[in-house]
Amino acid sequence: MSATNDIWVFVEHEKGEPKKVSLELATKARELADALGGSAAAVAFGPGAAATAKKIGLYGAGTLFVSEDEKFSSYSVTPQAQVLADLIAEKKPRVVLFPATPVAKDVAAQASAKVGAGVLTNAIAVDVKDGAVISTAPAFGGSIEVTSTVNGDVPQFVLVRPNALLPQQVGSDAQVVSIGTAIKDDSLLAKVVDTIVEAGSDAPLEEAAVIVAGGRGVGGPENFKLLEALAKELGGVVGASRAAVDAGWISYPHQVGQTGKTVKPTLYIACGISGAIQHKVGMQTSKVIVAINKNADSPIFEFADLGIVGDIFDIVPKLTEEVKKRKQA
């Protein structure tokens, strides 16, 4: 299939409110399309999809393909992948940008298998160089950064990490184009039978600008309240090391690291975390790292921008007060 130079974005949204990463991708799609002489478009599925047009357009995509079929919410990812694959086969975009979030990773996996796309994962940058679209991604525990592209005349999917790109208001309302939904055999699909909201598991760490993370040094579940208070004051969320999660003090969606989430906030405050390599790989691309640890020999001090040798039980409550004071001033 001979592709256009169009750049698409797979939009993730919550009932019509696009996730921040969707806006980051819309701006990037516009930039890449301008460089290649194509246009920037986006695709959104499920109830509320059309309502994303205002913001997605404002941040750069000129066209929004939507289908609001109920099936997209009552089934899991497969129908989105099916419909997306059909649309790609018809319109032939050159690149589709996806957020590197669980749902979008599944949609990209399934749609790429259907259209034979090449998938570049974990991107922290996407650029045009000598006419090729190149993605940059950390590898081997972040010790290197690999640049890659896609071979041959096939669609190029790039899964981009949240917080890696800068969203900018560069457009206006996207033109909404409704697309047909040819969802195939229901019996092949995994069906969502219930959606459970659990208090305390709301942990949108990948999107957070500030993360206050606690480790074994926090000492128990109730002490995480100290971290929550600080996070709240800074407009952030609470993260954790595996030691704290394994101890059962906080739920797994909060875990940062090799077997947890990879995060990229502006500010990461590590409290009572030693800084083991498996933790470091999940948070080392944070813009600013502050560590509070009572052991001066902790490895975390080897890569924190500001290290405080001290007791979190003394310092964290005082810091919360200090932040509050300065915000009022």
Binding site: G118, A139, A304, G307, I315
Partner: peptide, 26 residues
């Protein structure tokens, strides 16, 4: 379909300032 073009070592994070808390850490 995925083609690696090259790689560079990531700039290692440097240790920043480390301060011992004397009561004024906040």
């Amino acid at each position: 379909k995925e083609k690696v073009l090259g790689f560079v070592p990531t700039k290692a994070r440097q240790a920043g300032k480390v301060v011992k808390d004397d009561g004024a850490a906040a």
